[in-house]
Design a protein around this nucleic acid. Structure first.
Lengths: 358, 358
DNA sequence: TAGCATGATGCAAACGTTTGCACATCCATA
DNA sequence: TATGGATGTGCAAACGTTTGCATCATGCTA
């Protein structure tokens, strides 16, 4: 590592303006008394040297940095980047910066990322937890770093938490299918170790029970939130002796794989099979057919999460104030992928799995 | 702002281990001589206090932070988030952190973001410029902050630059259409103030010239890289007295709007119209029909950009070393949205513009 | 026994800020 | 003429690190 050229510092500005560092600091930050003429000398010098305050040093001295960390599982999921975008905007409007990292849902990466954020001395953390154990929370508490958990709940919601209405939203999706006349509904979801997946599954079951629709275990496919899982699960479902007339996909990340499988099997939507998805992402609306989905406002979640966090930060993280738990509303967006079931059972022609284009 | 609880510092660790700060530092960082027993006392103390080094302070002292800033126009464009993901991974493998910000292509936001990154004392910057003036570059030079420009070139490529093969890729796309027999090709692109858009347009024209295909100005629609522009431009093109038999869309961000318009106008792809796109994004492969596209490897771009930047950083930003200019290869991915033109001219039924589902 | 390399430790300065305190004017009021 | 608030400035400490230098044992070599 080679010695790097120094940027202009307050010392340089002060020297150029023939004044002290303290006065220069006050002039530039607009605090305390500075004579008009002195101030102008200092501002001129700052401009001449294109002085830029070192936020690292300022943070060190002031004990806060006006930056907060955001930890998401994945940068490739439109759902999370939309969230990141909303949070970033929301923070900016409060004068805070964003440090963004993705964990790829790997617990070790997550651990590294969290400790790293703490090391960077962020003022607080907004976090989509990947591991469900609370060890990292204890750690954060020991570091006095306020944190707001989003999207996925931790057991007992030990800290401020903002999530989508997973259970109710999922219930509404299934009810929509039932109201169209579907009785055999396939469910493809992710790992239930995450609360979001667990609650969506639960909501689905609740809707079935309430409507008196019998639960067929073979129609429920719990795996991972990955496209490949969508393909596998869809193939399994449609090859059942009595295949479903509708499929509820519990995550947008699974959907591409489902669609690929349907195409390979020559299944038409919604004539042969209805399709509904929990998350709503942009391309659902211009897919053919447009896909019915549960839409949750990431802006709303962002606002709540940022508000909660900044309150903790700016009023001190009073541990006696109990954790807040919030859910943001959902909306059922009915498009064209859902329709009444076909009258005759669907039988899948056993085509070879052609290589789909990448 | 309330006084925040202090995290354990080196001083605390040293006190607990009955040693000096200097020795504690050496023990924890593994540099210099420390007796076995002392080291253990220190490590124990650090663990007991869950000590986490303050990277801000370390950066201040060491004059580098092992973090670099990435500035992209948009977090909602899958194309850029894929890039961010690749760069983030690449940096991590070199032990660097990522600070990510989006400018939304607003010059003022861009200016703020850049100065802010400098203020954060990042070691370097990877930047997709939104404004084409070099003012910010002068500023960065004055701050001795190495920078690598990606995706969009600046006039004269004044610093290290890595871009996609916009011109050649675009040329290949048009050549593909021509080879299928198309002579009237619509072109929908973004603002040519950005080099990427400018070069893609140029590549398209080059292909036409080389093939002896006459250029019809009415077939060329230059606007913005937005979905809404895609809808407008497509409507215009298909209502021409002699509409195109193929459309070349120069950015993935425009494509959703194009598809929406085609659906509203009841145009079938590829029977009525061939469709090709410059960028390749995930949903192109499971759209109906899958969309032919020019695919450029964001991983390759990420690798090159990171390499260039870290070289500048770690070997000193020797200004005498001239700027490097790199282009990463593209690949034409032929899917099913391109086919030979229909024999009879297409006439669009003037349907009302139905409200498309969101 | 003297000399010296080696290992182990601590002191203190430095990075670039902010800010409490002290001091020095100046002007108005009592 | 004192008194004292308001204004303007600077010194120096502090934030949490790293690191050059000095110091001091210890054990080995000559």
């Amino acid at each position: 590592m080679v010695e790097r050229q120094r940027r202009a510092s307050l010392k340089d500005v002060a020297a150029q303006a023939h004044t002290s560092i303290a006065t220069a600091s006050r002039a530039l930050s607009g605090t305390g008394y500075v004579a008009e003429t002195t101030r102008n000398r200092i501002l001129d010098a700052a401009k001449a040297l294109s002085y830029q305050p070192n936020l690292r040093a300022r943070g060190l001295r002031q004990r806060f940095s006006r930056s907060i960390g955001l930890i998401i599982p994945n940068l490739l999921n439109a759902y999370y980047t939309a969230l990141a975008d909303a949070i970033s905007q929301q923070l900016a409007s409060h004068g805070y910066h964003l440090l963004l990292s993705s964990t790829r849902d790997e617990p070790t990466t997550e651990q590294d990322t969290v400790t790293d954020m703490v090391g960077q001395a962020v003022d607080g953390l907004i976090w989509v937890p990947a591991s469900s154990d609370g060890g990292l929370l204890d750690y954060l508490a020991s570091q006095h770093t306020p944190v707001v958990i989003i999207v996925r709940r931790l057991p007992n919601d030990p800290v401020d938490t903002v999530v989508f209405e997973d259970s109710n939203g999922s219930k509404a999706a299934t009810q929509h299918l039932i109201s169209l006349g579907h009785q055999r509904i396939g469910y493809i979801g992710g790992d239930v170790m995450f609360s979001s997946n667990q609650l969506r599954w639960q909501g689905h079951l609740d809707a079935l029970h309430e409507a008196g629709v019998p639960v067929d275990e073979t129609l429920i496919k719990l795996g991972t939130n990955r496209s490949t899982w969508g393909t596998m699960a869809t193939n399994d479902l449609l090859r059942l002796p009595s295949p479903p007339t509708a499929i509820f996909v519990a995550s947008n990340a699974i959907m591409p794989g489902v669609i690929r499988a349907l195409r390979q099997l020559d299944v038409r939507v919604p004539e042969d099979l209805s399709l509904i998805c929990f998350d709503d992402v942009e391309w659902f609306s211009f897919s053919v057919p447009p896909i019915t989905a549960i839409n949750s406002s990431s802006t709303a979640l962002a606002e709540s999460a940022v508000d909660l966090l900044l309150t903790r930060i700016e009023h001190g993280d009073a541990p006696e104030r109990p954790p807040v738990f919030l859910e943001v509303n959902f909306e059922l967006v009915v498009r064209r992928s859902t329709a009444p079931p076909r009258s005759t059972p669907l039988s899948v022609r056993e085509g070879h799995l052609e290589e789909a284009p990448i």
